[in-house]
Simulated scan of single mutants.
Amino acid sequence: MIFDTSIPIIRKKAINRIKHLLDKKAKIEVLEKKKNRTYSQNNYLHLILGWYALEYGDTLEEIKQEHFKKNVNPDLFRTEFINYKTGEIRERWRSTRELNTGEMSSAIERFRNYSVKSLGLYLPEPGDLVHLDEIKNQLEQHHNKIYL
């Protein structure tokens, strides 16, 4: 977990966590985390999808497929292919890896707008590193990691 020790309440949580680990005689590693200058587009997308999933009450994968791809960006993700044995036209949903940077930017912006309209949830812009770090910490607190 990452603690911003410049914030008094977070600093206290960090001290309590370290004391707890020392009491358990746990093996620990303490590192100084340098501030990120940016998040990659993919990391940023997964942070905001995870935050939306947490607030919506569903898994990251469900939000990514049903909301991000199917509801908000079907024009970017929905494709068709022909089953070579039956000749049937089938639906396929592209991976985010298949998008170029421009398409990804457009898809993310649409999702940010959708989030505000559908859930009233503001998703921070890519440059809002303080807010994104707070989201990352919140998501990391969920031990089952279904939102990351």
Rank of each mutant, 00 (worst) to 15 (best):
P8I: 12
P8R: 02
K12P: 00
K13D: 07
K13F: 05
A14P: 00
A14I: 07
N16E: 07
R17E: 10
R17N: 06
K19H: 12
K19S: 11
L21E: 13
L21M: 15
L22Y: 09
L22W: 08
D23H: 12
K24I: 08
K24L: 14
K24P: 15
K25S: 11
K27A: 07
K27W: 08
K27N: 12
K27F: 12
E29A: 04
E29D: 09
V30N: 02
L31N: 09
E32Q: 10
K33Y: 13
K35E: 12
N36W: 02
N36F: 05
N36M: 06
R37Q: 09
Y39V: 03
Q41P: 03
Q41H: 05
N42L: 09
N43A: 12
Y44L: 05
L45S: 07
H46E: 09
I48R: 02
L49D: 04
G50A: 10
L54Y: 06
E55Q: 00
E55T: 01
Y56Q: 13
G57Y: 10
G57P: 04
L60E: 05
L60H: 07
E61M: 14
E62P: 08
E62W: 13
K64W: 01
Q65M: 04
E66A: 06
F68K: 01
F68Y: 07
K69R: 07
K69S: 06
K69P: 00
N71D: 10
V72M: 09
P74D: 03
L76Y: 13
L76T: 02
F77V: 02
T79D: 13
E80F: 09
I82N: 00
N83I: 02
G87E: 05
E88M: 05
R90F: 04
R92G: 03
R94F: 10
T96E: 15
T96H: 13
T96S: 15
R97H: 15
R97C: 13
E98D: 15
L99C: 08
L99V: 10
T101H: 13
T101I: 06
G102T: 06
E103N: 09
S105D: 12
A107H: 01
R110H: 02
F111A: 04
